[in-house]
Design a protein around this nucleic acid. Structure first.
Lengths: 186, 186
DNA sequence: CGCCGAGTTGAACTGAATCAAGAAACGTGG
DNA sequence: CCACGTTTCTTGATTCAGTTCAACTCGGCG
């Protein structure tokens, strides 16, 4: 879940124009575990999720990606490993496909592009670290409240069970957490 | 916790020679929360840990860094924010200080350096994602077993309570996990 | 020796998971 | 616009993994 950080906006949009656009319907997959991820996805419209399955078959959502966000499995793209993630549309979406070679070329030839890419990587790291902190030290309630504060829009657009999955708790627990919050404020 | 990925090894070592070396005694800090992190630390000898304090004052270890590993708070270095992390020596250590400007200069002037740096970033992301997966879907025992498999050396060098902190469990729990593993194998 | 920090063990507790059953909301076709 | 089935959310009862707190053991080390 990496936001467009604002630099090179003109250039970014012109790059995106040169990319192919893929339209996906709700529930369709852009990537499945086992495949090699060769592209970065940029969400023009709609909403995607990235998740993995644990060894007992449960889904764990790694990130949501609404409009103007980038998603990819950097592990697969960069290290050329089969992916362990799924990327799926949660709404009908239009997604720009930026393939890895293009990124390599742009890094070399377009001044500022590698800085831009670098910024995306650092944003990604920041986001992951924050996630780890929450998982290590925040209760279900605290994690939920932070989610509400950070992603109020996503909260409204995805089923509650998916928020629970993102937070690392069960849907039942999230339901109870929400109730306990609402009774507190009365 | 990012390993030297092997590329540019000669160049890396010559860069390191141009850096100042800081010797730190066990328990000394290289970074404290609130400070601005301006350097990347490369551990020549010894062992560091990076941790943060949660709002109830508990330590959570983010990473260990033994010989030939890099540590830094990328969030602070890159975004120029005050750090929320501590970096502390767990053994008497020798650490090369690579300041951010040097990294910028090298990225521009030394061919291959930005690729090298990119690889470090991707390794970092891979590591963080793996950490998140474990926290989301593995039990205390599974996390411990994976730690043993991945970092047998660190296991021997740090107090058990610190391993527990890294795994996100209490020292008591880790002690029980270890016992249950050892009784299983008898 | 006796202290001291690290690790272990026990007992009670707790946050969240699980399992199972209902209630609401939702959209799709008649 | 209503009726129907499906999905989503809530609620309750129970269980469980891991925490907490307190006491105890062990191995250095002054």
């Amino acid at each position: 879940m990496i936001s467009n950080s604002g630099i090179d906006e003109h250039e970014v949009s012109s790059i995106l124009k040169s990319c192919s656009i893929r339209k996906v319907k709700k529930n369709q997959f852009l990537l499945k575990a086992g495949e090699y991820c060769k592209t970065t996805f940029f969400v023009e419209t709609g909403l995607l999720r990235q998740f993995h399955l644990d060894n007992s078959g449960k889904e764990h959502i790694i990130s949501f990606a609404p409009e103007s966000w980038f998603v990819t499995d950097r592990e697969s793209t960069y290290f050329d490993n089969p992916s362990t993630y799924f990327i799926q549309a949660l709404e009908d979406s239009e997604v720009a496909l930026i393939n890895e070679e293009l990124i390599q070329v742009l890094s070399r030839e377009l001044i500022g592009f590698s800085d831009f890419n670098n910024r995306l990587l650092h944003n990604h790291i920041r986001h992951l670290q924050n996630r780890i902190r929450l998982l290590l030290s925040a209760s279900a309630e605290e994690r939920y409240l932070q989610f509400v504060a950070m992603y109020p829009d996503i909260l409204r657009r995805v089923p509650q069970a998916m928020v629970a999955s993102y937070l690392g708790i069960t849907p039942e627990s999230l339901s109870r957490v929400r109730r306990s919050i609402s009774t507190k404020s009365i």
